[in-house]
Design a protein around this nucleic acid. Structure first.
Length: 249
DNA sequence: CCGATAGTTCGTCAACGGTG
DNA sequence: CACCGTTGACGAACTATCGG
């Protein structure tokens, strides 16, 4: 896949970035684990573009521009929200980056060094740490959240599939009721409960995989949008640079 | 055509979180 | 706490591709 390229030549791969930083950024990013056995820790940004800007030392800053919301500046190890109004252009000068808007107002980017990639404090419980690292909202929730931004439709309630399950299960249940007489009722009951559970889980797995595919499609669409937007911004940056160069000459 | 290999799909289990 | 839904992991079955 083509990487996100920025002024200073650094590249950002929107699908691998989060695994490098190793932190959780719920405000702007959602991690996906094990989309396939050879594709671990795919990370999707909910932003339109991300620019990686090397600053002093090892600190990196991701500039996240969202079309319908305030933009966010995030370091690789910690979230650093900076308000940027929509449609502003980010001009980056290194090493002490300054966020500059086209309206002329300057917003100095304050970078907080955290010292290590491990953004978890000692006070956080192992369980919480593990949850942050490994737990992920369901595909339904992720897609509904994305849909809430107004760019993606909410995930359908899959009522068709649910109703299919219900009808199939209920028909089995009816069948079970007729078998609850005579000896070995307990054993038979357990066996039928297991059968029912397997049936439900089978359907649940199908539904889960369907949602997963849908989610991946959304991510792929988003990548395409991000790449387009990235190119637009690169072009815009280039023209602004040329304009600036003409003025200073 | 046939066997080997890789990739995909499906069912199942287990772990976890949410809910009543 | 029991129950249920969700989803990662695993193995088996199936499918596609390729070289001999």
């Amino acid at each position: 896949m083509e990487s996100m390229v920025e002024e200073n030549g650094s590249t950002v791969d929107p699908l691998s970035q989060g695994s490098q930083s190793g932190d959780a950024a719920p405000a702007i990013a959602t991690s996906v684990q094990s989309l396939s056995r050879s594709q671990h820790h795919l990370v999707a940004s909910t932003s339109i573009v991300q620019l990686t800007l090397p600053l002093s030392g090892t600190t990196q800053v991701q500039s996240v521009i969202q079309p319908n919301q305030q933009s966010v500046i995030q370091t690789a190890t910690n979230i650093q929200p900076v308000a940027l109004s929509k449609a502003n252009v980010i001009l980056v000068s290194k090493p002490n980056s300054v966020i500059q808007t086209t309206q002329g107002s300057l917003q100095t980017l304050q970078v907080v060094e955290t010292g290590s990639d491990d953004s978890f404090s000692d006070e956080e419980s192992p369980k919480k740490r593990r949850d942050i690292l490994t737990r992920r909202p369901s595909y339904r929730k992720i897609l509904n959240d994305l849909g809430g931004e107004g760019r993606l439709p909410p995930l359908e309630s899959s009522s068709e599939c649910d109703s299919n399950v219900d009808s199939e299960v209920s028909s089995h249940s009816l069948h079970y009721q007729t078998a609850y007489t005579g000896h070995g009722v307990v054993v038979e009951d357990a066996a039928r409960k297991r059968e029912l559970r397997l049936l439900k889980n089978r359907e649940a797995a199908r539904e889960c995989r369907r949602k997963k595919k849908e989610y991946i499609k959304c991510l792929e669409n988003r990548v395409a949008v991000l790449e387009n937007r990235n190119q637009t911004l690169i072009d815009e940056l280039k023209s602004l640079k040329e304009l600036y160069q003409q003025k200073t000459d």
